[in-house]
Nucleic acid binder design. Structure first.
Lengths: 341, 341
DNA sequence: CTTCGAACATGAAACGTTTCATGCGACGGA
DNA sequence: TCCGTCGCATGAAACGTTTCATGTTCGAAG
């Protein structure tokens, strides 16, 4: 069905090698032959067979990114960043979705390995050691870890400093004059949640403030946030926090809704800071202050590291890049707290 | 670097063809030879070269999906649906992101064609005729259009009936006793918006109700919704609608925020229905009624049509499947309007 | 003891490229 | 006139599989 180089050669009345030259080094073939070949290609609707090309060449121009969840805006932004870099370098990105399922991740990696992709950006499902990935690294397939396992020896990695993020948020609230601050989010078994909490605790203790009241939620969702806020509201006024730092914007939105429903005003009665700066944070009823991660940047850098490693080959020095989050200050934490308490 | 079948054969002391048999039809090779080969594979860390396999076999087990926007939950759900079906059939899905950019779409399709993928699910950037896609169809690459161009002759397609969606929403509000209903959304040059509006208009006219007040927005966003709601609120009470149907949930959320800010209660003063049933619709301050599209189903069906076409080959009858949206009724439109006016 | 078939294993051909050493004119300089 | 070069085209080899017609061996049936 599909025409091959051979048929093109025949039709153009040239040899097979010449057609290949037209395709790959058009400058070394005479203009007239070239146009003749190009015409033949056009007429036959010839499309290069990438399998054959790759088989011969040994290398591919495809970079894969295996994400935990295609529907998570964090990853989609990372993907966009990676695309920008890879396409800029003439390559192509394919996105694979592990969906947090270890078996699917495994299957994806298998296939990608068989495809001999140029390299893989991956946020592995499990956080620990990765013999699988080590093996690939050893085999010469560049792997860059995204938002995971900074510090492993066999791969480059990019990540965002969640401890710092928690610190920034808490510091901001402290500067605004808040003394009783709560942390809402969970489960703390998630590294991200634990880090953000740790950062907040550290910042508060440095400022000489009391440790935050921690309201742990089972998941990071709007409704979990609402329930947690109900608990907070139920506290006697004297012990009620004047500010809440949420582990994530979904939780923060839930908290915001519940507070509003109870007649408490944000930020006057209780200030609020979220995390992730999702699209809805700025669009919330009270625009939400939120810790922003440089998501596209993360993807761009990951892709750059990958391409570097791909070029360097053998003697590549693995690097671990850690980005700093920053705070987007909006109305939910805008005002200075007047007076003490 | 990477071991080949030949080396495996050598190490296992068998012929090259036998190794291939172990890989592809393990049953026809004796257990002892098989284990010997498998051991060799293990020891050498052999990984099949898919390029060679595909070159020889001529066909691929990869299905591509080219989406308009990876960060749009609509598409990510479609992707998940397609993945379920394709992986169930032993294939693999790769996701490509055109980002609404025609040139990128083109490049993606080029590459996919070169890769000889099994088929392509695509929501083309431009809505009209697609000589490009026709060409692929002619060449025998199955293409299924997603949410576009139902009615074109050369491809299968799946879509959701937006006219019906608009109709359902308006009907629901009419049943709740609303007489003055507004439509907020735009630009109406978007087919989706126009269809939803048309459906709403049809339903209202059938019910003998006045045509809806149309507040056109420049885009479908939260802030556009807020602005539109400001306009509505500014109307004299006698002309103010008692219900608003929004072209999309983002707009509806904006409207909800603005109404609340103006002291109007939802649904008591004004009822609200959105479209898309995004995750935040149920989690909004007032849980939002919304027209839900069967997004995963869309992806599943698209993938099924693709696989069918792939199997049928020549004499395949293109099909156009249109799904019906349904209304998720929540608090924002829950109550019956008491009395007339 | 021969013959047949079953059960496996074998090796060469083919898939469509890219690459590279080689061929072939023509042209300019000695 | 001859040689060296330059510019371009050529064709065969190689990439790693799968497939298929062809061996080979062994045991059972005649």
């Amino acid at each position: 069905m599909a025409a091959s180089i051979k048929e093109v050669a025949q039709r153009a009345g040239v040899s097979l090698g010449t057609v290949s030259n037209v395709l790959n080094r058009p400058d070394i073939v005479s203009p007239q032959t070239r146009t003749r070949v190009l015409e033949a290609i056009e007429e036959l609707g010839f499309v290069r067979n990438d399998s054959a090309r790759q088989l011969r060449a040994g290398r591919s121009r495809t970079v894969a990114i295996v994400v935990l969840d295609v529907s998570n805006p964090f990853f989609t932004d990372v993907v966009r960043g990676a695309e920008a870099v890879v396409e800029g370098a003439g390559g192509m990105v394919v996105v694979c979705n592990s969906g947090g399922d270890s078996a699917r991740e495994h299957r994806h990696l298998d296939v990608l390995e068989e495809q001999r992709v140029q390299g893989i950006l991956v946020t592995p499902v499990s956080d620990g050691k990765q013999p699988r990935l080590d093996r690939m690294a050893k085999r010469g397939i560049p792997v860059v870890l995204v938002d995971r396992g900074a510090g492993l020896a066999n791969q480059c990695s990019v990540a965002v400093d969640d401890v710092l993020g928690g610190r920034i948020a808490a510091q901001h609230l402290a500067e605004r004059g808040h003394k009783r601050i709560a942390f809402v989010g969970g489960p703390t078994s998630l590294r991200q949640v634990a880090d953000r909490l740790a950062g907040a605790q550290a910042a508060l203790s440095e400022q000489g403030l009391a440790a935050p009241l921690v309201v742990e939620t089972p998941v990071l969702s709007v409704s979990a946030g609402r329930q947690a806020a109900d608990e907070v509201v139920a506290l006697p006024a004297a012990r009620r926090p004047t500010a809440i730092f949420c582990a994530n914007d979904l939780v923060a939105l839930g908290v915001l809704q519940a507070l509003t429903a109870h007649g408490l005003r944000v930020p006057d009665d209780i200030a609020l800071v979220g995390y992730d700066d999702i699209e809805f944070a700025a669009g919330a009823a009270v625009p939400l202050s939120s810790v922003r991660q440089p998501r596209e940047q993360l993807g761009r850098t990951a892709a750059q590291l990958l391409l570097e490693e791909s070029t360097d080959g053998e003697h590549h020095e693995h690097r671990h890049v850690v980005f700093q989050p920053e705070l987007a200050v909006r109305e939910s934490s805008a005002k200075k707290r007047r007076g003490t308490r």
